[in-house]
């Protein structure tokens, strides 16, 4: 540690007195307002909201429950998009697979799995990673070194490899995929959190809290965390997209979710073998759904990054 130099005053030579921007209702109002400035990001947000709503209300929007084998009609197998069902009553908007499963329904149900796996793993990983990162930055010394070396170790393995190994060990299943994603992802949150917290913990309000005898847990969660939140939010948003694509990769490789509850990745994988034999829709439409979801999430994440980064603002 180096001594803090005594600095003579540096009067701010700001051309305009008073806070620029003039937000008076807390910092989040400004964030929302700045976010709304980009039409692209707003479109992405709307798309994302629609995707999430479609996933949440999938049972109400779909003609059949793709997981209920009783509702499938083997006679409807491999129908092209737009074909009517044999029993009548509804149209297979995006076609069916070899079991006669409506692809539209399967995509919406698959979205539920993909989104929940992505969001839950990102949230838990953020909680674990950020807590460890903040703790490391605030405590310092050997504890910090130990935590950060584990992070370095973790990040030096390709994440897909780590996830594959974990799933090979634990076996398939939605919970196991979530667990694997958490183990893969926590380290990057820890590194980001520590980096930001290192800067923040040198600021005087943290020292003031120390002087005032505020307990450590409170300093970390009430003082450090809220001020380290912006980069973590950006990271979290983008990591949800990453987790979804990682889950899709794992499922595509056959190590992810079970066949009975296909996620988007597994749907793509199932249709893959028919891709060149004319039944393109089996992989194509789940692929589009995955693409739209991840692009929307990334655009929202990018805008968050711009909003939170003061240098990017004019």
């Amino acid at each position: 540690m180096t001594p803090v130099p005594d600095q003579p005053p540096t009067p701010t030579a700001g051309p305009i007195g008073g806070p620029i921007g003039g937000a008076t209702r807390g910092p989040w109002v400004r964030v929302a307002r700045d976010f709304a400035r980009s039409p692209l990001a707003m479109t992405a947000l709307v798309v994302l909201a629609l995707v999430v709503l479609a996933a949440v209300f999938a049972p109400l929007l779909t003609p059949q429950n793709p997981y209920d084998l009783m509702q499938l009609d083997i006679m409807d197998g491999m129908l092209e998009p737009g074909s009517p069902s044999a029993a009548g009553g509804y149209t297979y908007l995006l076609g069916t697979d070899d079991q006669g499963r409506d692809l539209f329904s399967a995509i919406l149900y698959g979205l539920r799995i993909s989104l929940s796996v992505g969001v839950v793993s990102a949230l838990v990983a953020a909680l674990v990673g950020a807590s460890l990162g903040l703790f490391a930055a605030y405590v310092g010394g050997r504890t910090e070194t130990a935590i950060m070396r584990i992070v370095d170790l973790q990040l030096s393995f390709p994440s897909i490899l780590v996830a594959l190994m974990i799933l090979a060990f634990l076996g398939k299943g939605v919970q196991n995929v979530v667990l694997a994603l958490i183990i893969v992802e926590w380290a990057s949150y820890a590194r980001t959190a520590r980096g930001t917290a290192l800067v923040e913990s040198r600021r005087e309000y943290i020292q003031a809290a120390d002087c005032l005898g505020v307990p450590m847990r409170r300093i970390i969660f009430r003082h450090l965390l809220p001020n380290c939140l912006p980069p973590l939010i950006v990271m979290g948003t983008i990591q949800v997209g990453r987790a979804i694509s990682l889950e899709a990769t794992l499922s595509f490789l056959g190590l992810g979710v079970p066949v009975t509850e296909p996620s988007l990745g597994l749907l793509i994988s199932n249709g893959y073998q028919y891709l060149l034999s004319g039944q393109y829709w089996l992989s194509f439409y789940p692929g589009i759904a995955l693409l739209v979801t991840i692009v929307a999430i990334n655009l929202v994440g990018d805008q968050f990054r711009d909003v939170f980064n003061p240098k990017g603002r004019g």
Partner: peptide
């Protein structure tokens, strides 16, 4: 509690995400 410190930088010595009331009351409550 018997000695306290006031810092140089008026900007960074207060937590930007806490109302001043909460900030002043915090030591009293903890």
């Amino acid at each position: 509690r018997r000695m306290q410190m006031i810092f140089q930088d008026p900007v960074s010595s207060l937590n930007a995400r806490m109302t001043v009331g909460t900030a002043i009351a915090e030591p009293f409550l903890v």
